[in-house]
Design a protein around this nucleic acid. Structure first.
Lengths: 210, 210, 210, 210
DNA sequence: TATGAATGAGATTTCATTCAT
DNA sequence: TATGAATGAAATCTCATTCAT
C-alpha cells in the first residue's frame, strides 16, 4: 500500500494532538495506523523524526500560504487581516496538526529543534513586519508592538484549542471576528470592509480544496 | 524534613513545565527533589495525584484572588482590568505552575479531570460575567462575547509562554499593556486611568508578598 | 537478598563465556540469575556497564596477583615462571571470566574500552619487563622479544579455551608444562627446578582459598 | 553483477571480524555490501549459512594447503615448520577471515557445527601427527605432546589478533620467528636452516598469488 | 537479479509502583 | 520519615526473515 505512510502520519497527528507526543506510545500509533510497530520504522525513522516531519510540513505550508497572502502590494489593513484569517482558518480546519506544531516543540531534541524553531521564527517575522509597517503608517497604535504580536499570535493559536465546526460559529464568522479583534487590539476601530469578507471567503475555499 | 513535600512539589512544577507530565519520569522527579523515588510516594500518592494537587492549588489560588478582585462593587472597566492584571501577573510571576495548569489538563484521568475542569470553568465564569456585564452596560461591544472571552484568555495565557523578567518589560508594563489590549479588543478605546495603574501596583506587591 | 548482585554477575560470566556478550540477551541473563529483567538494572547499570565491571574485576585481580608474584627480588627465571603459572592457573580455574576478559574487548564502547585496555596494557607490561630483563641478563635469547611476549600470552590465554579439570591433566601439570614450554620458547633448555614446583603448589592453594 | 556474492562475503568477513557475528546485523551487512537486505537472501541463505560457508571455505583452503605442504616425504623438522609457516602466514595475510574461523564457532547451531568442527579436527590432526612423528623420531621432546599441540596452535592463532603488515615485522620475519619458537618449544634448539627460509619465501609468494 | 514493503519476535531499557525494613 | 530491593508492564527500537513484484 502506498498510502501507508499517509495513514501513519494521520494517526500520529490525531494521537499526539489528543494525548501529546510523550503521552502516546508507538504501539498505539501502530494500531491506530493499522500496521505493525515494526512497519512504522520502515517509514518514520525515529518517533521523533516523525514529529519533526509533521511540524516541518505544517510550518512550511503555513509559511508558503502566508507569503502568498502577504506578497501582493496591498494595504496595511488587508495584509494583517490576511495573516489573521489564514492563521485562524488553518487552526480551525486542521486543529490537530496545529496543536502538535504549537505545543510539541519542547519534545524535540536540539538537533531537530533548530530547524523547526527557525521555520516558526520565519513565520512570525511576517507578522512582525506587518505590524511594524502598520505602526509606521500610523494606522496601528499599539503601546508595545512586540507584545502586540505575541498577544495576537497566542490569541489566534487558541482557536485550535476550543473551536469546533459543530458549534454555532461558522468558519467565516470565526475568521472575521478574529480579524476585528486583532485590528481593535492594534487600535483600528473600523469594522471590516466588504473586500475583507470576500477575501476571507476565498481563503476558506482555498483551505478546503487544498 | 518538613519541607520535603514543598521540595517535591517545586521540583514537579519545574520538570513538568519544562518537559511535560509524560515527558519526565518519577526518577528524575526524585532526583530533582533530592529524595528516593520511594519517598515520593509518601507525599504525593500517585504521580497523577500530585499533578491534580498542583493544578488544584494553582486554580484555587487564582479563583480566590479573582473573587477578591471582582467582589467589591466597582465599575465594569475596573472589574475586567483587575481580572486581566491578576491573570497576566500570575502567569508572569509563576510561569511554570501556570503552564502546568494550562497545558496538562489532558494528562488527567477522568476522575481527577472533573474536579479540575470544574474549577477552571468557575474561574472562566468570572470573566464571562465581567464581559457580559460590560456588554449590558454598553461599554463593551464585542461582535461575539463568548469568542471574545476565549480570545482574551488565550492571549493572557500566552504570557506564561514568552514573558521573562530578565527582558525589557517590567511587570507593570506587561500588565498595563495587556489591560489596554483587552479593553481595545472589547471596543473600549480609552487609555487606562491612573487608578488602574495604582491598582496594578498594589496587585504586584500582593503577588510578591504572598 | 544481598547476594543478588553476585548471582547476576556469575550468570553473566557464564552466559557471556558460552555465547558471547552479543549472543545472549538480557532476558536470558535475568532468568539465569533468577530475577526479573527490571531488577537487573537495579544492580548493573547498563548491560555494557556490567561487562566493563566484570572485565575490570578480572584484570585488577590478575594485576594484583601478578605484582605480588613479581615484586620480591628474585631470579629472572622464577619471575617469568611465576607470571606463566599465575596466568595459566587463573585461566584454568576461572575459564569463563577469563574468556570474557580476553574476548569481549571489542564489545566495549570507546568510553569503557579506554579504562579496560589500560589495565590490560599494564598487565602485559609486567610480562614485557620480565622478558626484557631476561634478555639483558643473557638467560633468554628470543629472536624478537616483543613477538615472544605476544606468542607466550596467546599460548597461555588458550588454556581458558581447552583446559578442563575433568581431563587427564592436573592443574600442577598444566602449569608446569606451560612453564617449561615458555622457558624453552625463550631459549632456556633447563628443566624446571624443585623450587618452581613448590611455588606452583603454593599458587594453586592460593587460587582456591581466595 | 556477478561479484555481488563476493562483495557480500567480503563485507561479512570484515564486519564479523570486527564486531562479531552477533554484534552486527544484516542491515549493516547489506549496507556494507551495497545491496538491499532482501538481496542478501538471494545469495547467502540464512545469516548462519553464510557464516558456515565462510568458515568452511577458510578451513578447506587451509586443509588443502596443509596437506600439500605435508605430503611429500620430508624431514620431521621441515614438516612442522611448513605447518607453522602456513598457519602463521594465513593468519597474517587474511586476519579477518581467520578471526571469524577461530572465534565464531560458538555462533554455529549444532547442524552446521558438526561439519565445521570436523574440518577443524581434520586440520589439527595434521599437526598432531607431525608432532607425534617428531616425538617418535626423538627430535621433539615435549613433556606432553597434546598440550604442546594446543599451545602451538593457540600461539599461532594469536597472529591474527595482533599482527599488522604496517608494523616493523615483515611476513618472512613473522613466519621464521614463529618457526623458531615452535621448534624451541618442542625442544629443538637448532636455528632454522637456509632451506626453511627458502621454503618460507615460496609460501609467501604462493599466498599472494592465490 | 534485485528490492520495497511488511512483520513477529525480541532487543535493551524505563515506567510507575509496592513493600519490608 | 525514608529507602533499597524488587517487579510487571510498557517504552522505543532492531532483529532476521519473507514475499510479491
Amino acid at each position: 500500500m502506498a498510502d501507508t505512510e499517509a495513514r501513519i502520519r494521520a494517526a500520529a497527528i490525531r494521537l499526539w494532538a489528543e494525548r501529546g507526543f510523550h503521552g502516546s506510545g508507538i504501539r498505539e500509533l501502530a494500531e491506530a495506523a493499522g500496521v505493525s510497530s515494526a512497519t512504522l520504522y520502515h517509514y518514520m525513522g525515529t518517533k521523533e523524526d516523525l514529529l519533526a516531519a509533521i511540524m516541518r510540513d505544517g510550518l512550511l505550508r503555513l509559511l508558503e500560504l502566508a507569503r502568498a497572502a502577504v506578497k501582493p502590494a496591498q494595504g496595511t489593513e488587508e495584509r494583517l487581516s490576511a495573516l489573521v484569517q489564514l492563521h485562524v482558518l488553518t487552526h480551525a480546519v486542521r486543529p490537530e496538526q496545529t496543536r502538535v506544531v504549537d505545543w510539541e516543540m519542547r519534545s524535540l531534541s536540539t538537533e531537530h529543534a533548530a530547524e523547526i524553531v527557525a521555520l516558526r521564527d520565519e513565520y512570525e517575522l511576517l507578522w512582525q513586519e506587518a505590524i511594524d509597517e502598520g505602526c509606521r503608517s500610523g494606522l496601528f497604535r499599539p503601546a508595545h508592538p512586540r507584545v502586540a504580536r505575541l498577544a495576537l499570535l497566542e490569541m489566534c493559536n487558541g482557536v485550535a484549542h476550543w473551536y469546533t465546526p459543530d458549534g454555532p460559529l461558522t468558519l467565516e464568522e470565526l475568521a472575521l471576528r478574529h480579524t476585528e479583534m486583532a485590528l481593535a487590539l492594534l487600535g483600528v476601530a473600523v469594522p471590516v470592509g466588504v473586500d475583507v469578507v470576500r477575501r476571507c471567503r476565498d481563503l476558506i475555499t482555498l483551505m478546503w480544496t487544498d
